[in-house]
Design a protein around this nucleic acid. Structure first.
Lengths: 208, 208
DNA sequence: CGCCGATTCAAACAGCGTTCGAAGAGTGTC
DNA sequence: GACACTCTTCGAACGCTGTTTGAATCGGCG
């Protein structure tokens, strides 16, 4: 077995974090960083795009592991009572928010990845990673427990909304700062998560 | 005055709508469509990127005009009473949702634009368009009227959240369909807008 | 007319991702 | 030990990209 694929994955991960725009990442820079040649990217991964996808997948798995561990902690903490709704929401959206603010986290890999997914002409390459790895379904039973009057579909819709708010925070920080007159400190992950939870919780409250 | 810049803007708008990925849009294709040569793009706009930004700006203005006209309609309809909260929210997020679903609208220009803004190494080129043209501040007084217990910053934060949910719908349709078990018809703009309004309204209700 | 700025265009340039073919490394078989 | 075979590496080349350059052309104006 060659160890070049592994070195390419590592190089890709490292370079994606250093880079401001994803098209500063070239096969030639990648190859140099991994001590190999441009053609080995195509050889081992099929294309540069697929290498980036594989890199993102690896990072996604770590992010999701953190989500799950927060979820389990929330469940443990409250056991045998049902977990707090606030904790479940924070487990869902917290890691993304936190990673996006930690300067040395690998979050840049994910934001480059999602921006590539949007502009790709081969959405099928990305779909499995976006829909499969982020298996939000693990959260479903706990939301159902806390809001049994909502169907699975209704809960899924509210999770989508929560994730949309999360993305707005991680993606358009400067725009948010303008809209909120700089009164929210968007560099304080804890505060931001709290604000998101505060806005999402009412979506799961019993109506009327 | 030359009429080439105008033809380039038109060509860029048309091609951005036809294209799946923004890097299918090349200066050579642009030039051919506008009956000119590749170098005229750089000559008139500085770069291909700036041409795309100018194109998006033009489309953004139309989208915002539609928002404002919906806002005014909502105000007129209720006058002299304050407008309905639901109508204000629908005016804010409705046009994007509707455009993103109309096959012949120019929404593709905007989604290509935002995905470019994310991956650009010159964010300053995009900032004025993103923060300036979308002058959401017009909505502020009406929200304040309807939720006087919220500060401007609090309202701005909730508007951000609403826009985030809107983006989630216009961007990740397939992911939403999976999460909601295909029980929401994301191709029905009216229904989608209604669902968003339904989730956003509680954010503006008096706490407690 | 003569001039001058504005505009057009073909050619060239440096960079990109990928493909190709030859060379090398390692392994199992005769 | 020698051969055959696959897996891997690598440099050269290909076709494409956006931009720059310099010469040609156009349109008014003194």
């Amino acid at each position: 077995m060659s160890q070049t694929p592994g070195r390419l994955l590592d190089a890709c991960e490292a370079l994606l974090c250093e880079v401001d725009s994803v098209d500063e990442l070239t096969v030639r820079r990648l190859a140099a960083h991994a001590h190999t040649t441009p053609s080995s990217v195509s050889y081992h991964f099929g294309s540069q795009e697929q290498l980036i996808i594989a890199t993102a997948e690896r990072v996604y798995k770590r992010l999701n592991a953190e989500r799950l561990s927060l979820l389990n902690a929330a469940v443990q903490k409250a056991s045998p009572n049902p977990p707090r709704l606030e904790d479940i929401i924070a487990a869902l959206i917290g890691p993304s928010v936190r990673w996006s603010l930690e300067p040395n986290s690998k979050y840049r890999v994910l934001s480059h990845f999602t921006s590539m997914a949007q502009r790709s002409r081969e959405p099928d390459l990305y779909r499995p990673v976006i829909e499969g790895i982020e298996h939000h379904r693990v959260f479903m039973p706990y939301f159902r427990l806390l809001a049994p009057w909502l169907s699975e579909a209704e809960i899924g819709w509210r999770m989508s909304c929560a994730l949309g708010i999360r993305s707005q925070v991680t993606r358009s920080r400067s725009r948010n700062e303008v809209l909120t007159d700089h009164t929210i400190d968007f560099s304080d992950a804890g505060q931001v998560i709290e604000r998101i939870v505060e806005v999402v919780v009412p979506m799961f409250r019993r109506p009327g």
